[in-house]
Computed example of a mutant assay.
Amino acid sequence: MKTTISALVASAAALGMVSAVQAADLVIYDPPMMETVAMATSGWDGFYLGVQGGGLFESGDIYGTVQGVVGANFSVSPMFLLGVEGAVGPYFGDDSGWNGYLAGRAGFTADSLLIYGIGGASVTDGDWGYLAGLGVEAMMSDDMSIRGQVVSYNGEYWSATVGAMWHF
Rank of each mutant, 00 (worst) to 15 (best):
V150N: 02
A40R: 12
M39K: 15
S11P: 02
L26S: 15
Y63V: 01
L114M: 07
G50F: 00
A72P: 01
L113S: 05
G163K: 09
M140F: 02
N73I: 04
S59C: 01
T109L: 02
F92E: 10
G60E: 04
L131C: 06
G93C: 04
R105Q: 09
D30L: 02
A138M: 14
V162Y: 04
W158T: 02
L102I: 09
L81V: 12
L8S: 11
L26P: 01
L102Q: 06
S152Y: 02
R105Y: 13
M34L: 10
G16T: 06
T124C: 08
N73F: 09
L49Q: 04
S59F: 03
V136W: 01
V150R: 02
A12F: 02
W44Y: 01
D61T: 09
G126H: 12
K2G: 13
G104V: 10
G163H: 09
F168E: 06
D30P: 00
A132L: 11
L82P: 00
L15G: 13
A164D: 06
D143W: 01
G107A: 09
M79L: 10
A20F: 12
L113T: 14
S159Y: 10
P32F: 06
V123Y: 10
E35T: 08
M34H: 11
G135D: 08
M144L: 15
D61F: 03
M33Y: 05
W158N: 03
T4K: 15
G133I: 00
V51R: 10
D95A: 08
P31Y: 01
S11N: 15
